[in-house]
Amino acid sequence: MSHAWRPVFVVLAVVAAIVVMRVILVPSDFTAKDGDYKYQWHRLSAEQVSKDFTVKHRGRDFCGQCHPNHIEKMKDSGHQNIQCENCHVMYEPAKKSHPINLKEDFGYLLNIGIDRSRELCKRCHAELSYRPKTYTSSKGTEKFKQIDPTKHNPGIECAMCHDVHSAGFKTAAK
């Protein structure tokens, strides 16, 4: 046997080590699904991980369990398409103000509170020349009320005069 074979044996040993490592370490469910090696080469169990992610926004159906009055009020209003979370979810946990611990009692993970800032309402109602001037509700196409925040009662909370849930004026609602 010539000495020249020896590096070949080293290479073969490395290849064997890689093959053994692959057999031990590659997850059994790692495969090309539907034979699609280009786009579906993955661990099948990973799909379930993505499916099992917790749902957080649960909307009116969830909130309505305790607050049916508010849901009822909104039903025919201009705000009928707005989900509770749009205004009530607080991304800073410190601002959370819901009296009941939703996380422990209901498995509801978002922080709920009340945001009365003008900034929130301006996201839709500040007038911009290129902001659509109508919107669609169950009643068909409606005029979209927009104001110039610098002129429209600056410095005052919108909820002073406006009833947010019925999308009307507070006095009118009473």
Binding site: F53, H57, Q83, V89, Y91, C124, P132, Y135
Partner: peptide, 20 residues
């Protein structure tokens, strides 16, 4: 139809736990 309120961005970040 988009009015640029960004509510979708906010909802997405909170739903999918992308730090706000």
């Amino acid at each position: 139809k988009c009015v640029g309120c960004g509510m979708c961005v906010k909802a997405c970040k909170l739903e999918n736990e992308i730090p706000f």
